[in-house]
C-alpha cells in the first residue's frame, strides 16, 4: 500500500485553517499573525526545496553529495543555536562551539547507526542517512541551545556568587559545576520526557510518517525506538561537550569569569 498523494488543493484547505488562526490572532491582538505567515511560508518553501534536493540526491547516491548536504544542515543548525541565545559568545566562537558540539555528537551517533546498526550497502544510502541525521541534528540543536542559554543566563545572574567562589580559591570549573549540571539537565529533559511519553501521549512523527507510508506498525515502532535512543545519546553527548567547551570559553587561563565574552542579542 503506497501513500495517498496530496494535491495542492488538499494543502490549501489546511492553509485556510492558518488564515483563520491569523485572523483570530489579529482580533485578539496576539501580534502573531506576521510571524505565523512568515513561518508558514518558510515551511512551505523550505520543504519543497528540500524535496527537490532529496529527489536528486536519492537518484544519485554519492558519498560526496551526502556529505555536502550534511554539512549544510550542520551549518544551518549551528546558526539556529546562536539565534536562540539571549546572551551569546562574541564573534564566530559561539557558532563554532555549537556547531562543533553537534558535529561531535550527531555525526558520530549517525555514523554508528548507519554503518553498524542499519548497515545498508552502501552505508550512506541517502534515504536513511539524511532523515536520520536531520532528526539527530534537530534534537541535538534543541538540547544544546537550551542548555547554553540556561548556562549563560544563570552565570549572568549569579556572577557575584561565582566570583565569590573563585575568590575562595575554586577553579572556574569547580565554581560552575552546579550551574553546568542544571544546564545539562535542562538540555536533556525534553528528550527524556518524550521517551517516557512516546506511544502513550503522542505517536512520534517519524513513526506516524512510516505508518502513513505503508510500513507495518511493528517495523515503524522498531525504527522509532532506534531513533529515540540515538536522539537521546546524541543530545546528551552534544549537551555535555557544549557545556564543557562553554565553560572553557567563559573562563580565561587565570580562572577569571569573562562575561565580556558574551553579547546580548537585543
Amino acid at each position: 500500500m503506497g501513500v495517498k498523494p496530496l494535491s495542492p488543493f488538499d494543502l490549501s484547505i489546511a492553509a485556510c485553517l492558518l488564515i483563520v488562526l491569523g485572523l483570530l490572532s489579529r482580533r485578539l491582538k496576539l501580534g502573531l499573525e506576521k510571524q505565523l505567515a512568515v513561518s508558514a511560508l518558510r515551511t512551505t518553501v523550505q520543504l519543497l526545496l528540500i524535496g527537490q534536493v532529496l529527489r536528486v540526491l536519492f537518484a544519485h547516491a554519492s558519498l560526496a553529495f551526502v556529505v555536502a548536504i550534511s554539512m549544510i544542515m550542520l551549518a544551518v543548525a549551528g546558526r539556529e543555536v546562536m539565534a536562540r541565545q539571549h546572551r551569546r559568545l562574541r564573534g564566530s566562537q559561539g557558532w563554532l562551539l555549537g556547531t562543533g558540539s553537534m558535529f561531535i555528537s550527531s555525526f558520530s551517533v549517525a555514523f554508528i547507526a548507519l554503518a553498524v546498526i542499519i548497515a545498508n550497502d552502501p552505508w550512506y544510502t541517502p534515504q536513511y542517512a539524511i532523515p536520520l541525521l536531520g532528526m539527530l541534528l534537530g534534537n541535538t540543536m534543541n538540547g544544546i541551545s537550551l542548555s547554553m542559554d540556561r548556562m549563560t543566563e544563570t552565570l549572568w545572574q549569579q556572577r557575584q556568587l561565582v566570583e565569590q567562589r573563585l575568590l575562595l580559591g575554586e577553579t572556574g570549573s569547580e565554581a560552575t559545576a552546579e550551574i553546568r549540571r542544571q544546564a545539562m539537565r535542562s538540555g536533556m529533559i525534553p528528550i527524556i520526557n518524550s521517551m517516557a511519553a512516546a506511544g502513550l501521549v503522542s505517536l512520534p512523527g517519524m513513526m506516524t510518517g512510516q505508518i502513513l507510508g505503508g510500513s507495518s506498525p511493528m517495523d515503524a515502532v522498531k525504527y522509532q525506538i532506534l531513533i529515540m535512543f540515538l536522539i537521546a545519546a546524541g543530545t546528551g553527548f552534544g549537551v555535555m561537550s557544549a557545556m564543557w567547551l562553554l565553560t572553557r570559553k567563559l573562563f580565561d587561563d587565570r580562572d577569571r569569569l569573562r562575561l565580556d565574552q558574551l553579547q546580548s542579542s537585543s
Binding site: Q160, L161, Q164, L166, L167, L168, G169, T171, D255, R256
Partner: peptide, 16 residues
C-alpha cells in the same frame, strides 16, 4: 590563579 586567590584573600562587601 586559585592558589593566588587563596593566598591573597579578598572579602567582598556582600557575601554569597
Amino acid at each position: 590563579a586559585p592558589i593566588w586567590r587563596k593566598t591573597v584573600a579578598m572579602l567582598p562587601a556582600e557575601s554569597f
